[in-house]
Design a protein around this nucleic acid. Structure first.
Lengths: 154, 154
DNA sequence: CGAAACGTTGAGCAGGTTGCACAGTGGAGC
DNA sequence: GCTCCACTGTGCAACCTGCTCAACGTTTCG
């Protein structure tokens, strides 16, 4: 990661479909350089993918909620995770600090529909209790780009 | 959104760099159809971008934490959000249900570094209290694709 | 100091891809 | 029956990609 990498990421973040050649022109470097940089960023794991980003809202799931799950002593995280994975509305989950807890981001078609999703999550007997917090408005949408800048000291 | 759209998204999620022509071959439809579908998915907001996905870990920020911020009565969410936006390590933030609360996802270079980030967040006087939860292991990485399937009834 | 390793540059090439246009087809709705 | 609309298949020029190559400057290290 150096300054050129960072500017390269900036460029592709703003105009993802420009292609290697156009990027090399914008940055004033050779095409092979851009290609090499992108390859390296991909192999070092900085770039994890180029897939299309989808909007749950546009897909009909405008409600987002965060669930904090309390896991029963003895119940493995993995079996809970496996259960969560079968629910499409669970779009993210991780274990967190605190007594055997997990955190999950879920979406739903409406507040009423959220109840259905939560019930589905709680169908797993390993989950003892859960707290739900509904997300109201997005203040800062998911962003990683600023990190790339500070990572190279810009 | 119909079945073809869904399969198109699947395809590009797995192999993002295949291009329109190759996608049309895989799906057994005309190239113009794929082009039209992608255009429509983009204009209707289902596809929000094609930018490279970056890994905070690979950028040197392996620690993820969730902050719940309690906002002082009278302090506007917007000023808090503006403050959070200036901190690169805050990679997501939204308002949530509960007495004037906000939620933020932050990353840091280490647990010690996390303290620095939190201090930076709390520099805003509008924030009264905060709770920190550290993410340990990712059980389900952010995924939206399954939603596209259920959205069309697959 | 000199050699080796490395990244960058600019060039070339065949092959594939894109953007665009066009006319024809078939189904849905009126 | 008619219109609208999406899909199809075709064609074209222009462009881009993946790949290779030799040459050059920097950095590293014996």
């Amino acid at each position: 990661m150096d300054d050129l990498d960072s500017r390269l990421l900036d460029l592709f973040a703003v105009e993802p479909r420009i292609g290697v050649l156009e990027a090399s022109r914008r940055l004033g470097v050779a095409r092979g350089t851009v290609q090499a940089r992108l390859d390296r960023l991909a192999t070092t794991g900085v770039i994890t993918g180029w897939g299309p980003e989808l909007s749950p809202e546009a897909l009909g799931f405008p409600v987002t909620a965060f669930l904090t799950l309390e896991i029963r002593q003895g119940a493995g995280h993995d079996s809970i995770a496996a259960h969560l994975e079968t629910i499409p509305e669970v779009i993210e989950a991780c274990t967190i600090t605190g007594a055997g807890d997990m955190w999950a981001r879920v979406v739903a078609r409406s507040n009423a529909d959220l109840q259905r999703v939560i019930d589905q999550v709680l169908a797993e007997p390993g989950i003892e209790r859960s707290t739900t917090v509904i997300a109201l408005a997005t203040q800062i949408p998911h962003r990683v780009l600023p990190l790339a800048r500070v990572a190279v000291g810009r």
